[in-house]
């Protein structure tokens, strides 16, 4: 549990047109952020079925990030 909170695994759903593009731009600008996020690209955050979020938690995600 302690390890979980200090090094949480976060699952992100990123909209291709905005948040995914922004994440690319963060890379181009060499911004540094913690390496805890694993992302899934979607064409719109509207694609995120609530079941995906529950499934993410069931798979051990400490948090779900939806960027759109």
């Amino acid at each position: 549990m302690t390890e979980q909170t200090t090094n949480p695994r976060i699952l992100g759903f990123l909209c291709n047109w905005c948040c995914y593009a922004a994440a690319d731009a963060a890379g181009v600008s060499r911004y540094q952020y913690p390496p805890n996020l694993r992302t899934i690209r979607v064409m719109c955050t509207g694609r995120i079925d609530p079941a995906f979020i529950l499934r993410g938690f069931a798979q051990g995600a400490a948090g779900i990030f939806a960027g759109g």
């Binding site: 994440a23 690319d24 890379g27 060499r30 911004y31 540094q32 992302t39």
Partner: peptide, 13 residues
């Protein structure tokens, strides 16, 4: 995407 969203943003890790 292991460049823009990985190696570039975690350059020191």
């Amino acid at each position: 995407n292991i460049r823009d969203q990985c190696s570039w943003v975690h350059a020191n890790e």
